[in-house]
Design a protein around this nucleic acid. Structure first.
Lengths: 343, 343
DNA sequence: CTGAAAGCGCTTACAG
DNA sequence: CTGAAAGCGCTTACAG
């Protein structure tokens, strides 16, 4: 077991000072060609690599990005991480991932943990509980300490920072508008409880679209789900009692569940009832029928978020206090598949 | 913007030495009750938190685990990360995630990057390319430097280290055995190319099961897929030309693709053809019909891998050189769903 | 051209 | 009970 070699050891071995070794390796012009070659050859031989931790301590930057998300077992979030990772790597950054499990406490703990020097900045999406409590002190604190934060998807107006989101309201509006134009008049909504920011916005888009087409808002065909694992009963009841001719669901799971329940009741999709989901993930692509959905490019969102964070990180060195926070919109579009008819 | 407070600042403010502050905060008995209280109160007021980087440098351990996997946009891997993260967190460790994108070079680069002090050890699953090249020098090197490595799922016998896997061969055997017992005689296989270790093992399980039942191995109904994104054509041809009565697929995607192609050809699943997949992910659960599959508990695998790594990490302190590497088997079982009949 | 010193933020053996 | 010193592994301004 040959432990990693350090500058100190090289210096000793070559009988020069540590500073000389350090400079030689960094190709400083202060050092004679001769010793430089000697040092570099030796370093190569022993496969010297500077210790990241020592560099971080010295430079006061870690070149790592902290990611805090509610869950990773969720295609959309995995996708975002993938996008972040790619851009981060291209720029010499690593990513350290923490999951809040939708818990406020875990979010706070993870954030504080990473804020103690482990990362240069954060990319995050709020946990459900955090959105419910509306307590963002941990985020504000991190920002106050000078660490940039970029929020994506589940964001809040209560914290000033860079954000990357989609226009949830507009995307939902367009989806519902599409259904209306196809002639449907009794369009149901399967959404989340209102404290989930994106759910609320998508609900608003649905309402606006119906309003603009002078269609009534019927609370009987609006289902607000609290617990995603037990959504079936409420959806089934709505389907059963109100016979909607189309459904807009604010995520993939609600969409596929709706389709399965409809099938169970003997309804065919899209012949008897059309369904549009949200987030173009694995489920939408592979379920039968494949699901028409609002695409939300996670790779792109992640990449953009990483870019914003890194830019701010590298900018900070020069001018400080340039507090022009930006909110970037990633565009979405309807992906037409089998769960709606083409007319 | 109030930057984070350090021991030095507290010392200055309170007019004591840095050592005294450090000891007071760590409740050293060397320190008088009086100053201890004073220091702790002050630290609390200014929300002092020790700098992780400094601690890492000092202690020569980072309390972070490096994870290197081929892809994250893959339910199984996301699941494993989730399992690792949970156990890691419980033990005060963070995880830093790097993706190899199935590329050997990226795997090497990431590994070297993290090995320079950023992590205490690794949990990894080999990239396809690495498995193909059979070049594991980067892993061996890390191990030689004294960093423990735990491999999971896609492992190799060429590296001695802890491993956590499932019995791919047995699991496949059981699945195929089940089909045979249901009376099928013309059972097709949709698998990967042989250099993917798990694919090869599952193929072997298939072959063994048929052999044990004295059924012939028919190469015409064995499809080996290289590129997962373009698997449809080959599967379709096999289905078309050989009319198998059942299919064993070595992953979810192959299974769902097979079902869709069968449907397209007018075959009903499971009435006309039964299908069993591998890995119990989102697709198996939500496709129509839902897919009978070999469950492979990623959360459990990840958790176990993290446990093994952490145990080795904490053990190292006492005795060194205890090179008793273990390979843990996570059990699997067949999850019966709609794509096979219950008889 | 080379090296001693200071410093990043911390801990701890040792002196007083 | 308190503090100066050394050290983790590195960099860089400064002296020689």
């Amino acid at each position: 077991m040959k432990r990693k070699v350090t500058l100190k050891q090289i210096a000793k071995e070559l009988d020069v000072s540590i500073s000389t070794v350090s400079k030689a390796l960094r190709n400083s012009i202060e050092i004679s060609e001769d010793t430089r070659q000697k040092v570099q050859a030796f370093a190569k031989l022993y496969n010297y690599k500077p210790n990241n931790i020592a560099l971080s301590l010295k430079n006061k930057k870690t070149k790592t990005i902290g990611i805090i998300i509610p869950e990773i077992v969720h295609h959309f979030f995995a996708t975002v991480i993938s996008g972040i990772e790619q851009v981060a790597n291209e720029n010499g950054y690593n990513v350290i991932v923490c999951l809040s499990d939708e818990s406020f406490d875990k979010e706070v703990i993870n954030m504080e943990m990473l804020a103690n020097g482990s990362t240069d900045g954060f990319i995050m999406s709020l946990s459900k509980e955090t959105q419910q409590k509306k307590d963002f002190h941990h985020i504000q604190e991190v920002i106050n300490q000078g660490m940039p934060v970029v929020m994506f998807d589940r964001v809040t107006n209560d914290v000033l920072c860079d954000k990357v989101i989609i226009d949830d309201q507009l995307a939902a509006y367009d989806a519902v508008d599409f259904l209306v134009r196809q002639g449907f008049k009794n369009i149901g909504l399967v959404t989340t409880v209102d404290y989930v920011s994106v759910g609320k916005l998508r609900t608003e888009g649905y309402v606006n679209a119906l309003n603009d087409h002078d269609l009534p808002i019927n609370d009987n065909i609006i289902v607000k789900i609290e617990d995603i694992d037990n959504c079936a009963a409420k959806i089934e009841a709505m389907l059963q009692n109100n016979k909607p001719d189309a459904i807009f669901a604010v995520n993939e799971l609600f969409a596929v569940t709706t389709i399965k329940l409809a099938n169970k009741m003997g309804l065919k999709v899209p012949e008897d009832i059309s369904v549009i989901g949200f987030t173009d993930g694995i489920i939408s692509q592979f379920s039968t029928p494949t699901i028409t959905t609002v695409s939300q490019n996670g790779i792109k969102m992640g990449g953009r978020a990483a870019k914003m964070l890194i830019e701010r990180l590298e900018m900070e060195e020069e001018e400080d206090g340039n507090e022009q926070y930006r909110t970037e919109l990633i565009d979405t579009h309807l992906v037409h598949r089998e769960s709606t008819s083409t007319l």
